[in-house]
Design a protein around this nucleic acid. Structure first.
Lengths: 126, 126
DNA sequence: AACATACTACTAAATTTTTAGAAGAGAATC
DNA sequence: GATTCTCTTCTAAAAATTTAGTAGTATGTT
């Protein structure tokens, strides 16, 4: 049942992130949002092809150009990536990971409040 | 000041994880802990060389064989990897990430308690 | 010391990933 | 409707990563 979400290479992931951000887009739409130095049009097109092959994206060819869209949700992929990291580096323990981050990053007092509220909610939703 | 920790490739990371786990070890020590199908001795040796080049590992050549050890701490690397993920997928918001994980993973009531305690500590440490 | 064994360093082949050119198809312009 | 422009698809070159062979050196053994 657990989704064996395929992993993406760095390049594929970069393009996919833009697609997630835009919700949908043509090759040119995605190209616009690429960091400098911008890749060539065909490079982006290739990555979209690879993403389709891997089942991460799809497209409709409405009129002139292809409109690409995400098939795998960003949340699903994030969950997979984050889950791997959780297992690899924090022995699968959320509390351990939270603890690590809390000491690493400085939290604003607003964030602290939100965090406490969140913790309460988790407890209450028993 | 922010540590520009170089990133590791998948293969390098696999070897590095074993080195972190062992604390130190020879090529053979690491080889023993590799997953099946085990790579060749020289493959592991190459990765250790690459890790040294990147500044992640070092070695002393005491007597017969080289003894390798981590130079970069696992926590440091984990922080870097996790920080990237945090920015990429959760807009840099810890609360958002915590929230995501809490709903994804089922937490035992013990974990929930620990989490609440952690949140309290974070708040208190003002 | 001569021989066998184990390890390292160097080199390069195999594979994967990234990049992009070229050919052709469809739309827009003149 | 011919020409030009844009886009897609196919193909392959370039670069990065992974894998491992070979040669040489050090260690241990008899």
């Amino acid at each position: 049942m657990s989704d064996k979400t395929k992993t993406l290479t760095k390049g594929e992931e970069d393009v996919m992130k833009i697609l997630w951000m835009l919700g949908k887009g043509t090759v040119n739409d995605i190209l616009e949002h690429c960091d400098e130095p911008k890749p060539k049009y065909t490079t982006v097109a290739t990555f979209l092809k690879l993403l389709e092959d891997k089942g991460f994206a799809g497209h409709t060819s409405t009129g002139k150009s292809n409109m690409y869209y995400p098939v795998v949700e960003q949340k699903e992929y994030a969950g997979s990536v984050a889950g791997n990291m959780l297992d690899s580096f924090f022995g699968g323990s959320l509390v351990q990971m939270f603890s690590f981050f809390s000491s690493e990053k400085k939290l604003s007092s607003k964030e602290k409040q939100e965090l406490l509220k969140l913790a309460q909610e988790i407890i209450d939703k028993e």
